[in-house]
């Protein structure tokens, strides 16, 4: 687990000396704006890493995007505007939560579809099961056979 992140980390470390994902210089002085920036950053992926958000990534590209986000927040842009800008620039690939469109219909529909299918399957199974008789008590022959079976040898 996390091996890929590791490889990613290792590769990045070779290129750049280790810097923390978010460095103190990047942090905005207004805590509310900073919190918004952090929340927003966790929605975008680092384009050169495996499954890391830009909030977690050490790559310089991630840092650039973080800086863009913070500048835009300070400039008074809304989250939606910033997201639109980044998607226009890097494509849907940058979004960690893919948008709902034709290509992802199946993805977003999957959980509901699975529950529906399973419920259908179980309803079917129940219908078949209904009407099955309850077990009658053992008859004499069975009792005798059981007694023979259970007799200590």
């Amino acid at each position: 687990m996390g091996h890929l992140r590791l490889v990613c980390l290792a590769m990045l470390m070779c290129v750049a000396s280790l810097s923390h994902a978010v460095t103190p210089e990047e942090v905005l002085s207004n805590p509310q704006q900073e919190a918004r920036a952090r929340a927003l950053s966790s929605q975008f992926r680092c384009l050169v890493c495996q499954n890391e958000s830009i909030d977690e990534s050490d790559a310089s590209l991630a840092k650039d995007i973080r800086t863009i986000i913070r500048k835009d927040i300070v400039a008074g842009k809304s989250d939606a505007e910033i997201t639109r800008f980044l998607v226009a620039r890097y494509g849907d690939f940058v979004l960690l939560k893919p948008p709902l469109d034709r290509a992802t219909l199946l993805l977003w529909g999957a959980p509901a579809l699975i529950v529906l299918l399973a419920a259908l399957f179980m309803w079917q199974a129940r219908r078949q099961q209904r009407g099955e008789p309850e077990a009658p008590p053992l008859d004499a022959a069975e009792e005798a056979a059981l007694a023979r079976l259970m007799r200590p040898e």
Partner: peptide
């Protein structure tokens, strides 16, 4: 190319 990341999994 799309990305399915933590926000998707957490939500679903």
């Amino acid at each position: 190319k799309i990305t399915v990341g933590p926000p998707f999994f957490n939500l679903c």
